[in-house]
Simulated assay, not measured.
Amino acid sequence: MTYAPKQLKKLHNYLKDKTGLSPAALGIVGDAAHRGGYHCGRDRTVSGDYSVVESSRDRRGLSNAASAIDIGGFAKNGKTLRGLSLWLVGQCRKSAPGTEDIREIIYSPDGKRVKRWDRLGKRSSGDDSHLWHTHISYFRDSEGKDKTALFKRYFGGSDSGSKNPSRPSRRPAPKPRYSFPLPGGYYFGWAHWGNESISGWYGTRFKGVSSRTWLKRFGSQLSKRGWPVGKGRKYLRRFGNDGKYGDEWDHLARAFQRDQGLAVDGLIGPATWRAAFRNPIT
């Protein structure tokens, strides 16, 4: 039976205190007739439910836990729902700390239009009910992770005074942390996809380093992050980390993008590169 997990209830209680909203205006679990979506657990999912099929993080973490919260309209101490919503979306777009587990935010920037920030880039809007409340979905594998820290930054709180701080649940990305080496609009991908697609096959150089070496650095970084990369292993099994983009590199890039909640296209652009060299290891 779908239930409200501990960390979402903790966020619910925090927001109730900070916004003055009644418990009913902070919804976690949908009503009994609700089927599908992040408000529902395994017992209420439907065939092809986007909250399960589009991300390996959701499939991996699927349980009977709800994974979303709705926040109703409020105005308290200079803080408002609209202000909170715009701030949250801005933080997500910057991949700020505390946003890595958010799948989507459905909100209204002006009370007239409904917009959606979707980490996977599949949707851009929602129904009109979101003119009056903001919906936040979390990847299902984040059920046990704290969700209040991000909101504490907005409302002016802090975890620094805790007498018993929790141990960090994420490890920083391994060093060295190279910035994306290609010019704007370029990416690592298939050799036959035009000038903007850099494959490592032709000896081109960027920032004084060959494109093949840059691609090998990406493969090495995933190996440092714990991915089984190299000859005879799960990824790059046949040719190893050769820095020449082909089928195996496409398979590796897509698997990593799914794991990180990115748009899955197999092409290694700035977002995929940044996730490898900057995102913490969870």
Rank of each mutant, 00 (worst) to 15 (best):
M1D: 14
F256N: 02
Y202F: 01
K207N: 13
L81I: 05
G20N: 12
L21T: 00
S179E: 15
L252C: 10
G243Y: 08
N64Q: 04
Y202N: 02
E143W: 07
S137I: 02
K115V: 01
S142H: 08
S197H: 02
D265E: 14
G78P: 12
V114N: 02
G261V: 00
S95E: 12
S158N: 08
G194I: 04
F155H: 15
Y154W: 08
L215M: 01
R167N: 08
K224F: 06
A255I: 07
M1G: 14
L15F: 12
K145Q: 15
E196H: 12
L81G: 01
L21I: 02
L86T: 15
A271P: 10
R170I: 10
I198E: 00
R205F: 01
L84V: 00
G90C: 03
P270Y: 07
P97Y: 07
G72Q: 04
D146V: 11
D49A: 06
Y235D: 03
A25T: 01
L15S: 13
V229R: 03
T2I: 10
S85I: 05
E248R: 09
W227N: 05
G98P: 07
S85H: 07
K94R: 10
L267N: 05
R113Y: 08
K147L: 12
D250M: 03
D250V: 02
C92S: 14
R57V: 00
G73L: 09
A253H: 00
D58T: 11
V52D: 02
H39G: 10
Q260W: 02
P5N: 12
S47D: 14
G41S: 04
R167C: 03
K145D: 15
S85T: 10
H251W: 10
K6A: 08
K112V: 11
T148Y: 15
G189R: 03
L62P: 06
L120V: 04
R171W: 07
G194W: 02
R153N: 13
S158Y: 06
A75K: 06
G232A: 15
A4C: 06
D70C: 11
K224L: 11
K122Q: 15
G266V: 11
I71W: 04
F239Y: 15
K6T: 09
L120K: 15
W87R: 11
G111T: 07
G73A: 13
V209Q: 09
R153I: 11
F139P: 01
L86Q: 13
Q260M: 12
V89Y: 00
G111W: 07
W201T: 00
I136H: 06
A25R: 13
H251D: 10
P109E: 05
V46E: 06
T80H: 07
W201V: 00
S129I: 10
D146N: 12
F256K: 03
G20P: 14
R177T: 06
S160L: 15
D259I: 00
Y50D: 11
G243S: 09
L86M: 14
L81N: 04
P109M: 03
A66I: 08
S108G: 03
V114C: 04
G246S: 13
S95K: 11
A276Y: 02
W227K: 06
G156I: 11
G27I: 05
W193S: 10
S220P: 05
K112P: 09
W117T: 04
G144T: 14
